[in-house]
Nucleic acid binder design. Structure first.
Lengths: 248, 248
DNA sequence: CCAGACCACTCACATAGGTTAGCGACTGGC
DNA sequence: GCCAGTCGCTAACCTATGTGAGTGGTCTGG
C-alpha cells in the first residue's frame, strides 16, 4: 500500500469531465482526496460480496470486473471497469456489497474513504451530482447488458460487447486507431455473456471469418466498424457520453 | 391530469422510510412537492426512449415496467415498478431516456418537475441521499436480474422473479398472507426473463405441478416458500431493504 | 349480443447453445 | 529446464428453449 502520486486522479478527472466541465476548484477538490494506492496481480478480488467497506476504489491502471456467483457456482460478470472508473461507488450509500470486484489484469487501484468523499460532496454539490450521475450511467449500462443477454443471440451479443468496449476505451484515450487491448479471457467473456467458453470461441471464430474483427493475443482490431455495429445493434446513447447531455 | 390529493405521497414516503427514518420536516418536504396526477389505462407508454423529460414520475397505484426494444423488435423488460417507485428518477441527471416505461395495469401516476426536485434536494441533503440511494438499489436489482437471466435456467429464473415480487410487495403492504396480485401477462414475464411465452407457460406449469405456487387469474399464492426460495437461489440482500443497512 | 382481441395453453418439430473430453502452445515458479 | 496450470481451440453428442401453428375461454367496445 503506497501513497498517491499527483497524477493518479488524471483518469478519473478525465472521465468526469467527459460528462461535465469542472471548475478548477472542483478539480482541486478531487485531486486532493487522500488516496491509498495498491498494486494487484491479475485475478485478485478487490472487495467481496458481503463486505461492508468504509472506502471506495478507483481503477488507476489495468482492468477489473464486477461479478456475482450463483448458488450452483456459475459466475455472472455485470460490468468491466477501465481506468478512471469507481466500480463500488455505490457502497457510499449501500452498506453491504451485493457483488464482488476482481482484477482482470495486473492493476493499480486507489482507495478513498467514504468520509472523505462525503466531506467533498457536501463542500462541492456539483461533484456530488457528477458522482450520482456516474452511478446512473452504470445503471443505464446494466439495462443495456440485460437486453443484450436476454434478447440477442450470442454472435450479436459478443459484437455488442466489443462495440461498447471500443467506445469506452476511446473516451479515455486507450485506443490505437481501430485497435485496442482486449484483456479478458474467453472464459471471462463467457461469464459476461451468459454462455459457455466453448460457445464464445465458436462465435469469435465466426466474427473473424466474417471479417469483422481480428483478435490476436489480447490485441483487438475492428476491421469493419459499420458492419460490426449493425450486427451488434449498437447505439451508444445508453453510455451517456455527450457532455452536453448532462441534465441542467 | 388532476391536482394531487394529500395522501398521494403515502406509498413513496413509506418506501423511503423503509430504508431511512425521515424527520417530520423531511416528510413535509416530500409531501409538499407539487404533483400532477394522471390516470392511465393498461399498456400505455408513460415515457419513451429518446424523450428528454423535465419531470419524473411516481407510481401512485397500479404497476408499470421499464423496457427496451432491440433492432429486430424483441422486447426486454428491465424492472417492475410498484406503488411508491419513481421509475425514471435517473432522468434528473441523464437528459435522454434510454428506455421506455409502460403501464402493466390501469394506473395512477404523479409527475414531479425536476426543478422542484432539485430545490428540495438542495434544501434537504438527506432527502437527496435517500433518492440517490434508491437509484443505487435499482442498480443492485439490475445486477441480480442480469445474473438471473444470464446464469439460471428458466424454471429457476421464474421462481426468482416470483420471490422478488412477493418480497417487494410485502415491503409496501400489498400482500395478503402468502398471496398477492401478479398483474403481468405471460408475455410480459417472458420479456422480463428473456424467453418466449411458450416457455414461460411450460415452466409455470412445472412450478404448479411441483406444488410451489398456485396462480389463478392474476392471484398468485406461494404454497411452499422455503422450497421456492431454494429453487430460485433467492437471497434478498440485493434489495437492501433493511433500514439499518443504509450507509452512515 | 356479437365480433374482434387478447390471453392461457398445447403440440410437433427445429436449433442455439450446453456438456464432456481432449489437444497443443504458452508461461511462471522452483 | 521441467512441471503444473492456464489459455485458445476443436469435435461429438445432448437438451433447454425457440418456432409456427392452433385451440378454446373471456373480456370488451359498439
Amino acid at each position: 500500500m503506497a501513497a498517491s502520486s499527483s497524477h493518479d486522479y488524471a483518469p478519473l478527472i478525465r472521465k468526469l469531465e467527459s460528462t461535465l466541465q469542472l471548475t478548477e476548484a472542483e478539480r482541486q477538490g478531487i485531486a486532493s482526496l487522500p488516496l491509498q494506492v495498491q498494486s494487484l496481480r491479475a485475478d485478485q478480488d478487490i472487495v467481496r460480496v458481503g463486505d461492508r467497506p468504509s472506502r471506495s476504489c478507483v481503477v488507476l491502471s489495468g482492468y477489473t470486473a464486477t461479478y456475482k456467483v450463483t448458488g450452483d457456482g456459475k459466475r455472472q460478470i455485470h460490468a468491466w471497469h477501465i481506468p478512471g472508473d469507481v466500480p463500488d461507488l455505490q457502497s457510499l450509500h449501500l452498506r453491504v456489497l451485493d457483488s464482488s470486484i476482481v482484477t482482470l489484469t495486473p492493476s493499480r487501484v486507489g482507495f478513498v474513504t467514504h468520509d472523505d468523499l462525503r466531506v467533498l460532496c457536501r463542500a462541492e454539490p456539483r461533484i456530488m451530482e457528477v458522482f450520482w450521475r456516474q452511478t446512473l450511467i452504470d445503471g443505464a449500462i446494466f439495462r443495456e447488458w440485460m437486453t443484450n443477454i436476454g434478447r440477442r443471440e450470442a454472435y450479436n451479443r459478443l459484437a455488442h460487447i466489443l462495440c461498447e468496449w471500443m467506445v469506452r476505451l476511446r473516451a479515455v484515450g486507450l485506443t490505437d486507431g481501430s485497435a485496442c487491448e482486449l484483456p479478458m479471457t474467453q472464459a471471462e467473456l463467457a461469464d459476461a455473456m451468459g454462455v459457455t467458453t466453448v460457445h464464445v470461441n465458436r462465435v469469435l471464430q465466426e466474427l473473424r471469418a466474417d471479417g469483422l474483427i481480428s483478435l490476436k493475443g489480447s490485441r483487438l482490431e475492428i476491421l469493419d466498424w459499420e458492419q460490426l455495429q449493425q450486427v451488434a445493434d449498437f447505439d451508444p446513447t445508453y453510455l451517456h457520453q455527450d457532455p452536453g447531455e448532462a441534465a441542467a
